[in-house]
Nucleic acid binder design. Sequence first.
DNA 1: TAGATTGTTAATCGATTAACAATC
DNA 2: TAGATTGTTAATCGATTAACAATC
Lengths: 213, 213
Amino acid sequence: MTERIPEGVIERLPAYLNVLIQLRGDDVLTVSSARLGELTSVNPAQIRRDLTHFGSFGKRGVGYDIATLVERIQRILGADHVHRLALVGAGNLGSAIAGYNGLLQHGFVVTAIFDSDPAKVGTRIGEIAVQPAVELATTLHEQGIRIGIIAVPPEAAQEVADQLVAAGVRIILNYTPVIVRVPGEVTLHNTDPVQELLHTLYYLSRREGVARV
Amino acid sequence: MTERIPEGVIERLPAYLNVLIQLRGDDVLTVSSARLGELTSVNPAQIRRDLTHFGSFGKRGVGYDIATLVERIQRILGADHVHRLALVGAGNLGSAIAGYNGLLQHGFVVTAIFDSDPAKVGTRIGEIAVQPAVELATTLHEQGIRIGIIAVPPEAAQEVADQLVAAGVRIILNYTPVIVRVPGEVTLHNTDPVQELLHTLYYLSRREGVARV
DNA sequence: TAGATTGTTAATCGATTAACAATC
DNA sequence: TAGATTGTTAATCGATTAACAATC
């Protein structure tokens, strides 16, 4: 309980959870570390070791009960209850995020959407009416929202981040390519597809290079 | 040259590059490992060590020439020339991706867009006309495209992945929450915002917990 | 020259993995 | 009981970091 959990373990838990939820959807009841390892590309020994940080909930000779494991990991991550999200930016990207299935599957619900464009205010995305940006602080406090998503044009990113921080948000997902500054107590996550592309590209050039020469 | 580069180094290079390009845009000429470390949250010693894997291009007492470093890292990653992308799915998400600034900044250009909805075919997103899905293989071969992006509804994800693979794509970015299967020679990248959220959530619950008790 | 910062070594630290006894 | 798979130890491996001589 008091033991410090390595960063790597916490990074892998969401991947386990994702696969486990899919398995549960397929009515599979138990899974071995070997099978889970295949599906997540993680070494089975590592999976077992990761899980023992939080107790021992496997059955020797059988494997792990999927329903139990899902619940346990959700509780560990704090994903065992619904989290409300505020979305800033009601353009294409904002609409796509609001309609994203994966969010709901893991207990994340967008309950407030903001846009500075008067033409967009009042329109609906799904069931949520778009509010003007000036109402951001009030609405977030009312709803007790701690997570914000930035889906506005790059120029506005820093300003929106500041507003979210001022409104008490603790986690920010930044979808712009801009490097945004936030105070230390706020966790900023940049979801930049380009970073991933560049990373993968390295291995592609190597492999092609070998094949070509 | 023949030395094997650790995975971690390759993961950090895109982060360095991103910051360096922003600095270059601000007309900064040189940067020290200390400053670069601040901006990327990486230990300065680590940055210096990372860079020596590829040669030594800093000046003692001065730092690194930004223009040179940008070029070097781009060449290492294979990002020193333009890469064409194929985008499948012309909905909100697809439109957002096609209009994403960050891609162009790093030499990625969407040059082909596909959708199975006849109503969308022929419309334009930016300068690109949406093509029917049946033309995917032909167009990709014509243009020599090696990178594909899946931005379709979850149900269609696996099918699209199969088509992209069949058309010779080597890197796939999957924007659906579905676990897609691809052959070993294809690199699949799932950009799932939920995984990041879940990860961050863990630390949030801990910190709030401490504050609350 | 004096100050700054790199390149590089050597020490530390932590994460990964193989192996196997425990046990379902 | 026999087979399977966990939980856990111990060994390995690699990555991170501090420190400092080299040098701009």
